[in-house]
Amino acid sequence: MNPVQQAVVWLNDPLNWTNSGGVLDRLGEHLSMSALAVLLGCLVAWPIGLWLGHTGRGGGLVLLVSNVTLAIPTLALLTILPLTFLGFGRSSVVVALAVFAVPPLLANAYTGVRQADPEARDAARGMGLSGGQVLRRVELPLAVPYLAAGFRTATVQVVATAALASFVNGGGLGQIIRAGFGLDIAAGGGQIVAGGVLVAGLALLVEGMLAVVERLVTPRPLRRVRRRANRRATAATAGG
């Protein structure tokens, strides 16, 4: 039996799904840890990105953050953070994943505000809006397509990276692949491929769903801008 057939057999065994440590457990872990990481990333990156974009400063900082995180191996953060005050367990994995969510969120929030039409900004100011009001009522709505694009890129990246949490026994669907590698490749090949299908399928599913969400939250006149925002986001955060 070749690995693909073995994988089909593995996926068709209901016990592999419902056992403790089975697919359903791992999927729950994977999703909860990704959601927490994206939430944490948003809480940190969006205020900073919007504020930097509003003041027009810190473009260099945004670039620096994305370049530096590109060079840091995920494995290094996953192994270093548990040894700090965060301790072993869920919190250090979530923080490690959040670090990789920050660059796309930050870069898109910054670009989104910077891309707001200067005339709209001037008009708002002329109407007597304060700096905070301009940010809230003019720049923020105009930045929504960029925020959505950044959210999508960051979420997909976190869901993909969460598979690596299995290196430090952090749970998630990656654990299935690791367990397969723990067996012999001839015996575990099916499980390895099945785990790969699950991890890749989840990433593609999340990507597809968020693409729809992104389209829904983008007002129709701004939909042309969306494509550009996407391209910029991928250019800014081309990392695995």
Partner: peptide, 14 residues
């Protein structure tokens, strides 16, 4: 690009 690296390893390693 959306496919996680670990999944790619899983597909190719066998």
């Amino acid at each position: 690009y959306t496919i996680p690296s670990l999944a790619l390893f899983a597909f190719l390693a066998p």
